[in-house]
Amino acid sequence: MTPGSNIPLTAARVAVDVAAPVRLDVSGLLLTADGKVRSDDDFIFYNQPAGPGVAYRSGNGTAPDAITVDTSAVPAGIEKIVVTASPDAAGQTFQGIEPTATIRNADDGSVLATFTPPQLSGETALVIVEVYLRNGVWKARAVGQGYTNGLAGIATDFGVSVEEPAPAAAPVAAAPPPPPPAPVAQQQAPPPAAPPAAPPAAPPLGAGKINLDKGRVSLQKNQTVSLVKGGRPMLSQVRMGLGWEPAYRGADIDLDASVIAYGPKRNHLDSCYFGKLSILNGSIKHSGDNLTGEGAGDDEVIMVDLGRLPQEATGLVFTVNSFSGQKFTDVAKAYCRLLDGATGEELVRFDLTNAEAQTGVIMCKLIRQFSGEWEMTALGDFVKSRTVRGMVKPSAQAL
């Protein structure tokens, strides 16, 4: 699964295993329609391993911990069960130890879906997946929401009372004698200047998401923009323009732009490139190969009809390769830009500012959210591959 994607559950009882290279604390919270627990009894974890319809199972350090949800036994009024995790070691973050959630049929153990949240760094706790009720149908959604204040931050967000240890009482001491009065003629020194204020704390992961309300957006690496604008319908057709110039005057450089389509389990659906100009029943089309990179404007354009994309297409990754073997250090001004297919208005632009001596680059990704809207994330990740075939696996990992 990719962030925001969802699947209907084909089993009444599901288990969510959460595995990582280190031991994790896994928990489940039963939430009402307002996104809060009814009481602390709805917080299921190692010290409170059972609740109505939800249970915690320890892996004892040799297997993943798991949360099991029996949807037939979940009380009325509970609309969502979120599954969370945090590293067991105090202060450890998820950087380099990304967890994988495996959703299974709890009765026969068969795998229904897997999800690994991408690009984690300073998070010390995660909401990984949620099991939720929508229009009478139970579903599972990939989330990947991070917190920097540990499991306590998640619990507090969802209405669980978190008791902080009381500070030790200060010893009672006799009041010090009052200071002698200063001589009348003596000027008192001004109080020392206050130290500079500490910078504001970084917002939690996902806070302040960029949108198109203020017009064209220029993205930096790993930034995400929601392709919606207040008061307007969702975009139905977009054009992804990719361009580059040779780093040396008079040189030709033949790069190939492609888009790789994936399903909710990061499964490869198809690839659109110069050798296959139309995929997914014509919902994605390629403009054709540019052999030199010379000239103003986009070198290659990929049209995407978002409204015609099949439902199983939840992620699109746009890549550029050097089939002739030239490195991206020989390229100047590589960029990608997203345009409204109906009006031609440029919506989002990402300029590749740093180059590496590689033959492939993952420029950006478009991810369909459960609400139906799409989000674009700038990537700029270099890989060793001269063809789109070699980009399929690293692009799936970038989802």
Results as ranks from 00 to 15, higher is better:
residue 178 P to L: 11
residue 246 P to C: 00
residue 370 F to W: 14
residue 292 T to K: 03
residue 387 T to E: 12
residue 310 P to G: 01
residue 52 P to D: 12
residue 34 D to W: 03
residue 63 A to D: 06
residue 371 S to W: 05
residue 29 L to Q: 08
residue 350 F to L: 05
residue 262 Y to L: 01
residue 378 A to Q: 02
residue 187 Q to G: 02
residue 288 G to N: 04
residue 60 N to W: 02
residue 41 D to L: 10
residue 19 A to M: 05
residue 95 Q to G: 14
residue 170 A to M: 10
residue 55 A to Q: 12
residue 30 L to E: 07
residue 294 E to S: 09
residue 214 K to I: 01
residue 205 L to R: 15
residue 310 P to Q: 01
residue 3 P to Q: 13
residue 136 G to A: 04
residue 6 N to I: 09
residue 8 P to S: 11
residue 16 V to L: 11
residue 101 A to E: 10
residue 234 M to Q: 14
residue 338 L to W: 07
residue 243 G to A: 02
residue 270 D to E: 15
residue 268 H to C: 08
residue 122 G to E: 13
residue 254 D to G: 08
residue 319 T to L: 06
residue 244 W to H: 01
residue 96 G to Y: 13
residue 184 V to A: 13
residue 335 Y to N: 12
residue 319 T to W: 06
residue 383 V to K: 15
residue 328 F to C: 03
residue 292 T to V: 02
residue 10 T to N: 10
residue 48 Q to R: 15
residue 196 P to F: 00
residue 42 D to R: 00
residue 230 G to W: 02
residue 14 V to R: 05
residue 36 K to M: 13
residue 221 K to D: 10
residue 166 A to V: 12
residue 280 L to T: 03
residue 102 T to N: 04
residue 46 Y to C: 06
residue 25 D to G: 06
residue 311 Q to G: 13
residue 261 A to N: 06
residue 178 P to S: 12
residue 260 I to Q: 07
residue 34 D to C: 03
residue 372 G to S: 01
residue 205 L to I: 14
residue 253 I to D: 09
residue 331 V to G: 02
residue 241 G to K: 07
residue 225 V to A: 05
residue 162 V to Y: 03
residue 380 G to A: 10
residue 27 S to F: 01
residue 136 G to W: 00
residue 310 P to T: 04
residue 180 P to Y: 02
residue 126 L to N: 11
residue 250 G to E: 04
residue 341 G to E: 03
residue 55 A to W: 07
residue 270 D to G: 12
residue 149 N to C: 05
residue 153 G to R: 07
residue 28 G to H: 04
residue 165 P to N: 12
residue 24 L to I: 09
residue 254 D to V: 08
residue 151 L to E: 00
residue 381 D to I: 15
residue 384 K to R: 14
residue 47 N to L: 08
residue 249 R to D: 13
residue 234 M to N: 14
residue 78 I to D: 01
residue 33 A to N: 10
residue 188 Q to P: 00
residue 162 V to Q: 01
residue 271 S to W: 11
residue 300 E to D: 04
residue 214 K to E: 08
residue 285 K to W: 03
residue 341 G to V: 08
residue 24 L to K: 03
residue 7 I to D: 06
residue 51 G to I: 03
residue 130 E to I: 01
residue 308 R to I: 04
residue 110 S to H: 05
residue 91 G to V: 05
residue 221 K to V: 15
residue 391 M to N: 09
residue 377 T to K: 11
residue 351 D to W: 00
